[in-house]
């Protein structure tokens, strides 16, 4: 069967010590370096990575960029930015991506919006991963009652109505960047937790964990030294896929007026305010949406690419096709 053949070939390749060619690629390299080598061959992923790096740069240097353009994001250009009838102006040499309903530069606002989107996306995901990995690892590693308790907790979190919770929380606490991050992290960590738990369940049965136990290693040590490093690959992939989810969540919150308070530009509140004029000024809806779309797409495609790069077996199958 082809499967068996693949295994045999895989063994050939995997048995680093015994064959020259593949080891040449591997020599002394960490598994992550290997993955990077594979990723570099994947043009789509590289392009996505490029887009993301660009976005990050844009977000970091947002002030400098808007200075360069000459239009601060909250500056209202009543004369140049609005048509005589009060509608936003179309893209022109003055406003490259057009203006909004009060005469602000859409480009400048998108640039600054990237800040909020990425900040919320990355920070919320980071928190979610931190909590998710901790809880998931504990659930999977200890099993039994602890697992039952933690897993049910995760189920509860996953079945929480997101928007209702967000609305009531904002109503009590008031909208802010911090609340946005909190709400989003609160809602996505259980996804990470679940995936991690599943992985840990299989890692726990590995002989190397048993070996560590037979040496007398403590549970904490086993989790930190033997279990968590093996979660790196799935967690990287999953967080890459989680960042766009968080970004979309943030945009949703902003869209509903529950996110970062105005006048701070976010893609979400831009899309929301563009609703009233989208027939007359479609660019105002189009460009923030496009920014959101491209960002989400880039992260998702990169996540897929990473999955292939980090999962050697998948890569091998590809190679055989």
């Amino acid at each position: 069967m082809t499967l068996i053949a693949a295994d045999e070939v895989a063994e050939q390749k995997g048995g680093g010590g015994k064959d020259p060619q593949p080891t040449k690629a591997i020599e002394g390299r960490a598994p992550l370096q290997l993955a990077w080598a594979r990723l570099r061959k994947d043009k789509v992923s590289l392009a996505c990575l490029g887009v993301i790096v660009l976005l990050v740069l844009v977000a970091i240097f947002a002030n400098q960029l808007t200075d360069l353009i000459g239009h601060p994001p909250n500056e209202q250009y009543r004369d140049e930015g609005l048509q005589p009838n009060g509608l936003p102006v179309a893209p022109s040499s003055f406003f490259w991506l057009g203006g909004d309903e009060v005469g602000r530069d859409v480009l400048s606002r998108i640039i600054h919006g990237a800040r909020v989107s990425l900040l919320v996306g990355v920070v919320a995901t980071a928190f979610a991963v931190l909590i998710g990995v901790t809880i998931g690892t504990m659930a999977g590693y200890f099993g039994g009652v602890i697992d039952t308790f933690l897993s049910r907790t995760m189920d509860v979190f996953l079945s929480f109505p997101f928007l209702l919770f967000a609305i009531s929380l904002v109503a009590v606490k008031g909208a802010s960047l911090r609340i946005s991050i909190f709400v989003i992290a609160f809602f996505i960590w259980a996804n990470v937790g679940r995936i991690v738990r599943g992985q840990v369940l299989s890692i726990r049965e590995k002989e190397y964990v048993e070996a560590a136990r037979s040496l007398g290693a403590s549970d904490l040590r086993i989790m930190v030294v033997d279990v968590i490093p093996n979660l790196v690959a799935p967690v990287i992939v999953y967080s890459t896929l989680l960042i766009p989810t968080a970004i979309v969540f943030e945009a949703t919150l902003s869209f509903l007026g529950l996110g970062v308070p105005i006048p701070t530009p976010t893609w979400g509140n831009m899309i929301a305010t563009s609703q009233s004029t989208y027939l007359q000024a479609p660019w105002y809806l189009l460009f923030p949406s496009l920014a959101l779309f491209i960002t989400t797409l880039a992260f998702n495609l990169l996540g897929d690419g990473l999955r292939d790069a980090l999962d050697p077996r998948a890569a091998r199958v590809l190679a055989r096709k």
Binding site: K206, E207, Y208, E210, S214, G216, P229, N230
Partner: peptide, 24 residues
């Protein structure tokens, strides 16, 4: 209490692929 005995009793496992942590 088992710890001191762990030094005296060791195991060698079957699967040369599974018994070594691939990340270390």
């Amino acid at each position: 209490k088992m710890r001191p005995f762990r030094r005296d009793i060791q195991m060698i496992f079957q699967d040369p692929y599974g018994s070594l942590n691939p990340r270390r």
